[in-house]
Write a protein that binds this DNA or RNA. Structure first.
Lengths: 248, 248
DNA sequence: CGGGGGGTTGATCTCCTTCAATCAACGTGG
DNA sequence: CCACGTTGATTGAAGGAGATCAACCCCCCG
């Protein structure tokens, strides 16, 4: 832990680990130079709140490393996660003054932030940023719609299987691993966070995870380390159409 | 499959009722001229399918009048609506070859379609279109996230109240009516479509609509015509934070 | 008249929530 | 080093919200 923490984070775009996927992916070197002028890094510890819904938000930015969640909460405390932010994902909405959701770091988190108004100005001038942001937003919209099916129509067991599939898939994509039939990864979420994502209680999550384990769909080491011996089987449990659309 | 009785109607952008809200809202007159060259109108009757998920899609477009739905269906028939398309809403995704969802006309529908590759070419050349599309996509993403809270955490009664609130609100916005405390509108959806939107069964929808009526939250003339005597009361039933965010 | 689509209502069942006890891992202070 | 509190997780028992299955109504239309 301490070792990882002490790693110096590069502020140089040229060495940025998320350069090829983030909002700046399409930028030319002169555009990157302009971005460097308005950017700054921020670090958050696991559990810290990045911003509260309704708060004034004078920056937008990208997740460099770590994981954050976007959540909505009703007055009586019921909460629903509406987004899971992974490295390269974009945070904030250009043209909007205040945050629409709570953003919370679930692991230690590094963000590359841009001051909002210069960023908005750049969006107007250089189409590369707006183009990439449109692409990313359309992807997020697709993901949100996929999740609406999960929330509205799937059983608890299918919900868990769906979540595990998604994490496994993205893990494979980030680490450039081939989609082999057996997959291993660490759950970045607590049982409660999983429940908030899936519209369940944490007890139901716990029970269904245990059930999937008992049925041999997954194997567990500790609470968080998951092995999926047969990815097809998991996708089947998720109720997704066969292939699982291994899209980039 | 090919009995699609789409009728082409010529129409002038200058007189278009959705010009100020659609994807072309920001276009200058010369840009509109270019758009006119690649556009064509299509009409669909209530119940007709505009396109099936997975089908090749060689156009994108805007809803001019009428209402369409975006739905996802699992192999066993469970369906979830993931979008409700109203006049001025955009259909299709630039850069994607095939439809990701079923699009169905729930009322008689008129669409203004653009041939896909010329449209994509225009997006690259004229920033006004991409800018507006980004804005609209961000709005849709917000709406989708709002809906995730409804699907994941609200009770059946709250779900119905939420749907009615949304329809009432948008109706007020389209018809430029002041947000008076008493509102009247026609439900554009069958009970089954409401159920698909809300992740419920049609029986539960029916029961909860009746319950809201019995409790005086709404009044009904026939099955479809709804009167809301006190909008605040309805918003309260929906579990939304007080004001209901009367956004433009 | 018959039939079908849309809608309502009733009885029963079940999956998930709720409430509660227990456990393991971990850090902290006496 | 051990008692103690805390946090995350598991498991059990009981209850309820909504699903399921089924009957029936209304209205339009051929």
């Amino acid at each position: 832990m301490l070792n990882e923490r002490s790693i110096t984070v590069s502020q140089d775009c040229a060495e940025c680990p998320i350069r090829h996927r983030a909002v700046c992916a399409r930028c030319e070197s002169d555009e990157l130079e302009r971005l460097e002028e308005i950017k700054y890094y921020r670090k958050f510890e696991a559990g810290q709140t990045v911003i509260w819904s309704g708060d004034r938000m004078d920056f937008v930015g990208s997740v460099v490393s770590g994981i954050a969640t976007l959540t909505q909460t009703m007055e009586d405390g019921r909460t629903q996660m509406v987004g899971l932010l992974l490295p390269s994902d974009f945070v904030g909405r250009p043209g909007r003054a205040s945050a629409a959701y709570d953003v919370v770091a679930t692991t230690d988190l590094v963000m590359c932030c841009f001051r909002k108004s210069p960023f908005e100005e750049m969006m107007r001038q250089t189409p590369h940023i707006a183009q990439r942001l449109l692409e990313m937003t359309l992807d997020e919209l697709d993901a949100a719609r996929e999740w609406m099916l999960v929330l509205g129509r799937k059983t608890a067991r299918e919900k868990i299987a769906s979540l595990l599939s998604i994490i496994a898939r993205r893990d494979a994509s980030i680490n450039m691993r081939a989609a082999s039939s057996t997959v291993t990864f660490d759950l970045p979420l607590t049982r409660e966070a999983m429940a908030d994502y899936l519209g369940l209680t944490l007890e139901t999550v716990s029970r269904q995870v245990s059930a999937l384990k008992k049925d041999g769909v997954i194997e567990l080491e500790g609470k968080r380390h998951v092995t999926v011996p047969d990815m097809t089987r998991l996708l089947d449990e998720a109720g997704d159409d066969s292939d699982g659309g291994m899209f980039a």
